[in-house]
């Protein structure tokens, strides 16, 4: 049986990818951030999942506004790296797992989550920056990846409650796949940040720390945070944190927090990282 053994919450700030790609990760601005991710990288190297389910959002790269899917599941065998406006990141293409993705679609739709099926898709920094943070710069990624793109760009994003329930349905779907696989699910984006308008640069560290505490000890409280609260208290782009609730929902009730890191800033973003193992 396939099992979701752990969840990783991490920001996916594009400037982090650019820092690695341009050889700046040892500079004083960036060094504390990358040092802070070393334990997570070591955990990943020990854990070696077969499959990563990457919950992230596309940033007007795979999807323009012709079609805006709320939940889009990547069912392709390979996902090329998008050119977001400065050339594609120099990272390996992402290998998918079409058979398992098709199974997830089937199970999730029957569980009343209307997934959009995506058979061709480029992936952007929302997916590749978490890969870089957890795996470094290998020639090929050491796992297959199933992308789950969530619309958090055009309001309203799905609610935290909806996301949490989707996570639970993903756990059920994975556990009904008859192959011994270790699966790690990522929830990415956030934490507090706003990158638009005169209010850009907003950071709310108490909000972020309470969110990390809640993931570990009281996810039901987080599920009740309304969209407007994310916007008001943690910045227009903090709504991305609902994606972390998909990850948390997929871990089952009991988790053990094995790592946490928090850092301000990466460009305009408060960066958070948490690793929760299912118990």
């Amino acid at each position: 049986m396939a099992r979701i053994i752990a969840g990783v919450g991490t920001s996916h700030t594009p400037a982090i990818g650019a820092a690695v790609d341009n050889g700046k990760s040892a500079e004083p601005y960036w060094a504390p951030l990358f040092q802070g991710y070393e334990p997570a990288k070591a955990w990943m190297a020990r854990t070696r999942p077969d499959v990563v389910i990457m919950v992230y959002n596309d940033h007007v790269n795979a999807f323009d506004f012709k079609i805006v899917p709320t939940f889009a599941l990547g069912c392709a065998s390979e996902f090329p790296i998008a050119d977001e406006g400065w050339g594609p990141r120099p990272v390996p293409p992402v290998q998918g797992y079409p058979q398992l993705a098709a199974h997830l679609v089937q199970s999730l739709v029957l569980d009343e989550f209307d997934m959009t099926i995506v058979n061709e898709m480029q992936v952007d920094h929302g997916l590749t920056v978490p890969m870089t943070l957890l795996y470094g710069t290998p020639h090929a990624w050491p796992c297959r990846v199933i992308p789950l793109a969530v619309n958090v760009i055009q309001y309203p994003a799905p609610t935290g409650h909806r996301c949490y329930m989707l996570g639970k349905a993903i756990r059920k779907a994975v556990e009904s796949w008859n192959e011994d696989l270790k699966v790690v699910i990522f929830g990415t984006g956030g934490m507090s940040h706003q990158i638009q308008g005169p209010r850009a640069g907003l950071v709310n560290t108490p909000f972020d720390k309470a969110f990390l505490d809640g993931l570990s000890r009281d996810p039901e409280r987080l599920v009740g945070i309304q969209p407007l609260e994310y916007l008001r208290d943690a910045g227009a782009e903090a709504i991305e944190l609902v994606m972390w609730l998909i990850m948390r929902g997929a871990l089952g009730e009991r988790v053990e927090e094995v790592h946490r890191f928090y850092h301000v800033p990466a460009s305009s973003t408060a960066v958070g990282n948490i690793i929760l193992e299912s118990r």
């Binding site: 308008g197 709310n204 008001r232 943690a234």
Partner: peptide, 25 residues
């Protein structure tokens, strides 16, 4: 750079604000 222009700050001022922990809500 784009975010700093939206706030009316120079990029340098904006980076300094972020290094000090960002804009308080």
């Amino acid at each position: 750079y784009m975010a700093s222009r939206m706030t009316g700050m120079t990029e340098k001022e904006y980076v300094e604000m972020m290094l000090k922990g960002g804009r308080s809500p």
